[in-house]
């Protein structure tokens, strides 16, 4: 049994909140650069250049990548042989509180969805814990802006809607979102499971590094087709026209019920932030 203290969890979450909001992962930056090289529409090329400049300015450490420093989505893969000496959720929230304060990040959480009073410290985190084997604790912090989050959609399709039905729903969702989610976007798609699990699949799909595909060639093929079809819509960076509407489509699947074909689409903006650490 490995012992981890609440203080270790808090310190890691604090640092990951700051890192994620100032430093975009290399896979996203590389993808933006290669999309800019391929883009032939002048306005689109210019905007992609602005986006790359912004990444460089943020990395200097004075200004976060985006003013929407998001709700702190925290994913923990916790080995069953790890024991944590105190309340895990409280330790994570404390890390978010310290990270958002010390990193000069925006407090964007309201305590009640209708009465809407800001909690002042961006807590609570949106925490997802998954038990795994082993003695490691892997923490991923993925701050999520809600300009893109608000453009997501979920639908319980019929099995007869099939592969084409899934694709149609994804394309309709991206098309309806248009310029709102700050294209170029990353499109996370969940397929299968149940009403709640499919949404989590879509969110987790966004954690996959750009350039990696679904392990099953059947779904990897669909990711490629969808990316091509989305980039033929013409929306382009910021919706001003162009090829680069999406950087990637990432699908995550799970078994489902004989009557069901749940599909969820979770859209991320080009500021596709995540930072990870293993304790």
């Amino acid at each position: 049994m490995k012992e981890l203290s609440a203080a270790q969890i808090t310190a890691a979450v604090r640092e990951l909140c700051i890192e994620a909001n100032y430093h975009l992962p290399a896979d996203v930056t590389d993808c933006l650069r290669s999309c800019r090289a391929k883009e032939q529409w002048p306005v689109a090329k210019e905007i992609l250049g602005n986006i790359l400049d912004n990444i460089a300015v943020a990395a200097e450490g004075d200004y976060p990548l985006c003013q929407d420093t998001g709700l702190a989505c925290v994913f923990i893969r916790l080995g069953q042989e790890v024991h944590i000496s105190d309340d895990l959720a409280a330790a994570v929230d404390e890390g978010v509180r310290q990270g958002y304060r010390d990193g000069y990040l925006r407090a964007s959480a309201v305590a009640d969805p209708l009465r809407r009073v800001n909690t002042g410290d961006n807590t609570p985190a949106l925490l997802t814990v998954e038990l795994t084997s082993g003695d490691q604790c892997e923490i991923t912090v993925a701050p999520k802006g809600f300009g893109s989050e608000n453009m997501g959609a979920l639908k319980m399709l019929r099995p007869s809607d099939g592969r084409e039905g899934v694709k149609r729903f994804v394309l309709e969702t991206v098309k309806a979102a248009g310029p709102n989610p700050c294209p170029p976007i990353v499109v996370g798609v969940g397929v299968g499971g149940s009403f709640d699990k499919v949404a989590l699949c879509a969110k987790k799909a966004l954690l996959r590094p750009l350039g990696q595909h679904h392990p099953d060639p059947f779904w990897a093929q669909m990711e490629e087709e969808l990316l091509e079809e989305i980039n033929a819509l013409g929306i382009g960076p910021q919706g001003f026209g162009g090829r680069t509407t999406a950087l990637a489509v990432s699908i995550k699947t799970m078994p489902t019920h004989i009557t069901a074909l749940p599909v969820a689409v979770n859209i991320n903006c080009h500021v596709s932030r995540h930072a990870r650490r293993v304790l």
């Binding site: 905007i47 602005n50 986006i51 400049d53 912004n54 300015v57 943020a58 004075d62 200004y63 976060p64 990548l65 985006c66 003013q67 929407d68 802006g145 300009g147 310029p179 700050c182 910021q238 001003f240 903006c269 080009h270 500021v271």
Partner: peptide, 13 residues
């Protein structure tokens, strides 16, 4: 007017 979404560091500066 549109400002470029997701370039808050550039604009802040």
């Amino acid at each position: 007017f549109g400002a470029v979404g997701g370039t808050g560091a550039l604009i802040g500066r």
